[in-house]
């Protein structure tokens, strides 16, 4: 007897996730972890560790995480059970170096505050621009 109200595995929408890490800091079992590489953010969900508490879905500011109706999780190794989402980092407008924030975070910030072109500059270019003034 299965009801549709049972909590299943969380699903991360790669289109919506912006790599802010709110879910990872809320997760009580460390099943959600955030790794930074040079030009992207990797969000990894270890389904084997997950206790289906749905704290991540509550914490997500962009509603990227939903609790699905999927209950059976099978895999030969822990790697097979992992769900990975790669979020690209925003790039500097002048030199093209990756920034600290993800592209989606910058987009969202732009939507909220329209006049924000300075934020898409890396630290070095910021200094350069200030000195040039």
């Amino acid at each position: 007897m299965l009801f549709h109200s049972i909590r299943g595995v969380p699903a991360i929408d790669p289109e919506k996730c912006m790599g802010c890490g709110a879910c990872a800091s809320k997760c009580p079992t460390d099943s959600l972890t955030l790794h930074r590489t040079r030009d992207s953010i990797l969000l990894e969900l270890n389904v084997a560790r997950c206790i289906r508490c749905a704290y991540c879905a509550e914490a997500c500011p962009n509603n990227a995480i939903t609790i699905e109706d999927k209950y059976t999780v099978i895999g030969r190794s822990r790697e097979e059970l992992a769900i990975r989402v790669i979020v690209p980092l925003a790039r500097c407008d002048s030199c093209g170096e990756p920034l600290r924030h993800s592209a989606r975070e910058v987009e969202l910030a732009r939507e909220k505050v329209p006049d924000l072109n300075v934020i898409k500059l890396c630290d070095k270019c910021k200094v350069k621009r200030v000195l040039a003034r």
Binding site: F3, S5, I6, R7, I51, R52, C53, A54
Partner: peptide
Amino acid sequence: GEILTGNRKMYG
């Protein structure tokens, strides 16, 4: 318990 909270045990 399952209907009310979504889990048989460990209601969370």
